[in-house]
Design a protein around this nucleic acid. Structure first.
Lengths: 217, 217
DNA sequence: CAAAAACTTGACTACTTGGTCAAAATGCAG
DNA sequence: CTGCATTTTGACCAAGTAGTCAAGTTTTTG
């Protein structure tokens, strides 16, 4: 009880040592792999520990509860995941901004499919761990960008379209390739891995969505 | 050993009684609810049994393994889920056919979100139980319809677009509203439940995708 | 209306798994 | 080098859960 308060009495600055930094990283990396594949319930602490190369009690020394690992992981992932949306420039050219956003999302879907799946799984199961985040961080950001899109529509720079549904469509289409990877592979076979597949995907998605929102004259 | 062979020696016709029919239905309905919410690992047999209003051993009398319930459920769901795609008429008007398909998918996403989530969860986790189905049933059907779309493009009835990616986009956008329901609700709030929300969704999705593939002249 | 078949269930087993603990090993400041 | 703090782990425990079983109850059938 008095032990923890030895150095810095009232504050709790929790200095992290070198070893802690290394091991937390090892654990989170391993956990991302396992959680994204098997889901929260489907993942055992032993699996994570094994993949991280340490014993279960040792892992629990860093994250006392399974939940802790999971939540830390989600928090870490979410910020990164949302960044591209925040980057949409209200003063930029609408079609160009959307192109950039979609392209970035498809890249992320290809380079970090586990992160996409982790998130998808969480939301699919009712977002028990992040409903707070959705309300306090995601919603305001989306509201803000939806307003921008709505303004663009008002200025005639985009065809009339509900901005929220447009954002949902972009999320859905881009994340589909990460989340439903097995299905895409079952249908497209070997060409999924082939060089240039991402470009082909981006080209198809961009062409439909951008043509879909380009103002008709 | 000889007991089962009493009536029909070599064949195994497995006649189903009235009670069997009722109880299997009760179990599958309950299981859909629970599996779609908690996933395979996250679901306990007791939960299903309780929801179905029977004891666990009784449930296991009908489905000796948890897996059996899950697989039966998926099989039952998949056929129904694919029907609208099969219904695309190669001789119909392309835009009209796509409109019909998208509209139907959005309806299903709203009326059977659990089925959508069950399937999404399975695919998200690598489709261990249905990779076979994907290869032998889904792929041929998609190949067939992709060929139709490709022909339409060739005839200038649709803007040039990769047919497979177009199909993926339709799946992604329509199922998004079932699979990511909590996220949609977190952002749109109460209007999700409101009368006319489905129409608004359909309108937005249709407008972007159909304009996206409508030939430009 | 019996007797057989089909159905139902309480009690139980075997196993998995999240988490604990005390003791040992290692790292590190003075 | 020494003593304290941090890190590591083998052994263990308690809870939860898939599946069994034998004994009962209900339904069907001749």
């Amino acid at each position: 009880m008095a032990r923890a308060a030895r150095k810095k009495a009232s504050q709790a600055p929790e200095k992290t040592t070198r070893i802690q930094e290394i091991n937390r990283r090892l654990i989170l990396d391993a956990a991302l792999d396992v959680f994204s594949t098997y889901g929260f319930r489907g993942t055992t602490i032993d699996q994570i520990a094994e993949k991280a190369g340490m014993s279960k009690p040792n892992l629990l020394y860093y994250f006392p509860r399974k939940q802790n690992i999971y939540v830390s992981l989600l928090e870490e992932t979410l910020a990164e995941w949302l960044a591209p949306l925040a980057d949409i420039d209200p003063e930029g050219d609408p079609i160009e901004q959307l192109r950039k956003y979609i392209t970035l999302k498809i890249s992320m879907s290809e380079s970090h499919p586990e992160a996409s799946r982790l998130f998808a799984n969480e939301v699919l199961h009712g977002a028990p761990a992040i409903s707070d985040f959705l309300a306090t961080h995601l919603k305001p950001l989306v509201d803000e960008k939806a307003a921008v899109i709505r303004r663009w529509v008002g200025e005639g720079k985009l065809a009339p379209v509900d901005p929220y549904h447009l954002i949902f469509m972009i999320w859905a289409t881009t994340q589909h390739y990460a989340d439903f990877d097995v299905q895409v592979r079952a249908i497209l076979g070997s060409q999924v891995g082939r060089h240039g597949f991402r470009e082909q995907t981006a080209q198809a998605v961009l062409s439909v969505i951008l043509n879909g929102v380009r103002p008709r004259d």
